[in-house]
């Protein structure tokens, strides 16, 4: 009965795959775009538990009283940010090719959360030191060509060499702390993208030891440049955030 069903869905049942002698960890890289930006890290974890079941991925289950699969997500993405580089490590216990994992998952995911790559990882999430974000900023201040150029210059100066410290209150579990966010910024560069739209590339601290939410970059711009004022109409003053990738402490690309 199961095999019949499975044939209809065009894939092999996980139970028909040979067991591995040892469970293996694979890394899945996926996008989180569009409407998916509004779901939290916790929502994502719950969702993947079900995605893996319906995709018939041969997950290894813990052997205890309450068996559960082992999945470990990478650096949490703040709500309101999109990403092309979310990561989840899966522990599987049966033979399956990485391209099969990708295809089976993509058949069970919406267009806004497609798997881009599946591979056996050689790194640990703790190797991540920085993440790169693309921030698109729509503001009336950039409506004119001169205004847009002036704004990009001011943003580049704010984060460039010899810039003034940007002191902000950073919230953490251990309480609020005043910090200079420049110490958590590797680079920020702005350019004109379109009429009224500025594009910012930001490489900022990410990971378990030091982490900067890209929202702090926006808050800094709001504070220093007076753009995106609170209560401004959403069609005139807006921004989007997209995570592009990660770097290790030595500046090499994290994969």
């Amino acid at each position: 009965m199961l095999s019949e069903k499975v044939m209809k869905r065009g894939r092999i049942s996980k139970f028909d795959r040979p067991l591995l002698s040892e469970p293996v960890t694979v890394r899945v890289v996926f996008e989180k775009r569009g409407n998916l930006q509004f779901f939290s890290h916790l929502d994502l974890q719950r969702t993947w538990q079900k995605v893996l079941v319906r995709a018939s991925i041969p997950m290894w289950y813990t052997k205890g009283f309450n068996p559960h699969s082992k999945i470990v997500f990478g650096i949490p993405l703040p709500v309101g940010s999109e990403s092309v580089c979310e990561m989840v490590d899966l522990r599987i216990d049966r033979l399956i090719r990485t391209d099969e994992i990708k295809d089976q998952l993509n058949a069970e995911l919406t267009d806004e959360m497609q798997v881009k790559e599946v591979y056996v990882p050689t790194t640990k999430y703790s190797d991540v030191a920085f993440a790169e974000y693309e921030i698109m900023l729509g503001t009336q201040a950039a409506e004119s060509a001169e205004g847009a150029l002036e704004l990009t210059d001011r943003i580049n100066d704010m984060f460039g060499h010899g810039a003034e410290p940007i002191i902000m209150t950073k919230r953490s579990k251990s309480g609020d702390k005043e910090i200079d966010i420049l110490t958590l910024v590797r680079s920020v560069s702005a350019s004109v993208a379109d009429k009224g739209v500025i594009k910012i590339r930001a490489v900022i601290a990410a990971g378990s030891s030091e982490n900067l939410n890209p929202e702090y970059i926006i808050s800094a711009l709001r504070q220093k440049l007076g753009i995106l004022p609170e209560g401004a109409p959403f069609d005139r003053e807006w921004y989007t955030v997209l995570r592009l990738g990660y770097f290790k402490a030595d500046g090499s690309v994290f994969k």
Partner: peptide
């Protein structure tokens, strides 16, 4: 863009996002 600005200004934006599988 407007949807993003609106939804990030309220609690539990996932309630209003749609786009479910």
């Amino acid at each position: 863009n407007q949807k993003r600005m609106l939804l990030t200004s309220v609690s539990k934006p996932g309630r209003y996002a749609g786009g479910e599988y």
